[in-house]
Design a protein around this nucleic acid. Structure first.
Length: 459
RNA sequence: GCCGGGGUGGCCGAGCCAGGCCCAAGGCGCGGGCCUGCUAAGCCCGUCCCCGUACAGGGGGCGUGGGUUCAAAUCCCACCCCCGGCGCCA
């Protein structure tokens, strides 16, 4: 049973170097690993030979004839232990070094990603859906963006400039307050009120309802994880820049329910018929956004905390590509239901998550910014997480393999809200509520049904 | 929080008190084979991890981390978790 990255390091190191270069990292790590690995194996052999010698002597002691022989054997065993002491310490050190270097490798990249992505490309648009509404002065911007990627789309020109989601929320609808939140908690926090809260809940229910009908178990996971588990599902950089730590506790706030969902089967040995396992997680997500600088400071697009419904799959290695298409397809259906124009892009090595072997993003059209923004990220992590979490499957012939894990956003509520505020906005500031959400709002007398209406507008 | 019981390989479960062919019995499950017209039953082999291309061989592993010993699943210490009882809180 072997991890694909380790396998590649030992048999095809050039593949690993290529991956590191494509992602924009130095390839030194490969040579460093190979050097330590060689040293480790050599010492391991030496130590095991000595231990064997010691075991042989130890086993013979109980048959020793007489005190004399017995004392001699014990003395011999003692000497070997002395000899071993220093070597074992060194071996342990090497082993730790080896593991820690090994754990620093990002995932290998799927062949087709190299083929589709030109060098230095950030992403490649694969398809467009829907008919974006474009302010007349932004038409060129949209067309450039689309044609650049070799596609053609239909669009609707409008003669009024849509208000940006942040202004909509705070100034037009007056249903959000990031200023007060900034004062009491800091930037990238928010208060949202009334209709937006109903919307937040309805979006989550919509996604959970949809996924539960597609074979997913819906789950509320722990919102915190221990260090050991956190570092098994994300890489070191993410831990540093993205994850909140609880002071004086060995606990970290999750950045997404992907993290605790992946951990659910940690250290488990599964049978083929147990797979696939499909989870739809619902949880708040906490993100430090330490490396975001001042990007998207306004509004609720990029915030420290939000709700998200997440798709997660454990599956057989040879089926993960198929499941990734399934996840993407679910996400697309959900977003088509929200009637929001989008495109699907293949994320190129430079911009991919380090745990992903292949990653799609779904980007929604944002009329006020006249650009597409990320709403969904759909990744095949292959065996990167399951190797660290020790999630195996026993195959026919009793061969063990690491399962593959995949994850994809279904709906992150705050981002979906920004997309709705811009795409379903009407000239008078009224926001149309997507029909699919209606049934999740129906039960509540004070929830909006068809429209979210600014106080000063009559409808 | 206190007292008592317990954590053994995918699961169940013996071993622990009296340390040593325990690199862990047995069962279930799973894989392969034999047998049979097919299936079932029965029988045989295999079924934790690492080093070794393979074979042979070897090392490690009994909740986690230390310790005692020539030798630890077995003894000692600390921690974690589970079950039962009592207490406390709602």
């Amino acid at each position: 049973m072997s991890w694909s990255v380790l396998d590649a390091l030992l048999s095809r190191p050039e593949d690993v170097r290529r991956m590191l270069r494509a992602r924009g990292y130095s390839t030194d790590l490969v040579d460093e690993f190979l050097r330590i690995d060689r040293e480790w194996k050599e010492l391991k052999r030496k130590v095991e030979e000595l231990r064997h010698e010691h075991n042989v002597i130890t086993r013979s002691i109980r048959q020793a004839r007489g005190e004399e022989e017995r004392r001699e054997l014990i003395e011999k065993a003692r000497r070997i232990i002395q000899e071993l002491e220093a070597l074992e310490k060194k071996l342990k050190e090497l082993e730790e070094q080896r593991t820690s270097i090994l754990r620093r490798f990002p995932n290998l990249i799927r062949q087709e990603v190299y083929q589709i992505c030109p060098e230095d490309a950030e992403e490649i648009a694969l398809k467009y859906w829907g008919k974006p509404r474009v302010y007349r002065e932004d038409v060129d911007k949209l067309l450039n963006e689309v044609r650049k990627t070799g596609h053609n789309i239909e669009y609707e020109v409008i003669n009024w400039k849509p208000v940006g989601h942040a202004d909509m929320l705070e100034n037009v609808l007056k249903l959000g307050d990031t200023e007060k939140a900034g004062e009491v908690a800091g930037s990238r926090f928010f208060y949202i009120f009334d209709d937006i809260v109903w919307l937040d809940l309805a979006l989550a229910l919509y996604a959970l309802d949809f996924l539960s009908q597609r074979g997913f178990r819906i789950v509320v996971p722990p919102y915190m994880l221990k260090h050991e588990y956190m570092t098994s599902v994300i890489d070191f950089d993410a831990l540093k820049d993205a994850i909140y730590k609880i002071e004086d506790e060995d606990l970290y706030l999750i950045g997404t329910s992907e993290h605790p969902l992946a951990c659910y089967l940690a250290k488990r040995e599964l049978l083929e018929q147990d797979l696939p396992v499909l989870f739809a997680g619902y949880s708040p997500c906490f993100r430090r956004e330490a490396s975001a600088g001042s990007r998207d400071l306004k509004g609720i697009f990029r915030v420290h905390q939000f709700h998200k419904v997440e798709q997660f799959v454990f599956c057989l290695p040879e089926e993960s590509d198929k499941w990734q298409e399934f996840l993407l397809n679910n996400a697309e259906e959900l977003w088509r239901g929200l009637e929001i124009p989008y495109r699907v892009v293949l994320v190129c090595p430079k911009e991919m998550g380090r745990t992903a072997a292949k990653q799609y993003d779904l980007e929604a059209w944002m009329p006020a910014q006249a650009t597409f923004r990320e709403m969904v990220s759909c990744s095949n992590c292959t065996d990167w997480q399951s190797f660290r979490l020790h999630i195996r499957v026993v195959r026919k012939g009793m061969k063990r393999e690491y399962v593959h894990t995949l994850n994809s956003t279904a709906i992150a509520t705050t981002r979906a809200i920004t997309a709705i505020l811009e795409n379903h906005q009407e000239p008078d500031g009224v926001v149309r509520v997507p029909k699919v959400l209606r049934k999740y709002l129906e039960a509540f007398p004070n929830a909006p049904k068809d429209y979210i209406v600014p106080r000063n507008v009559k409808r």
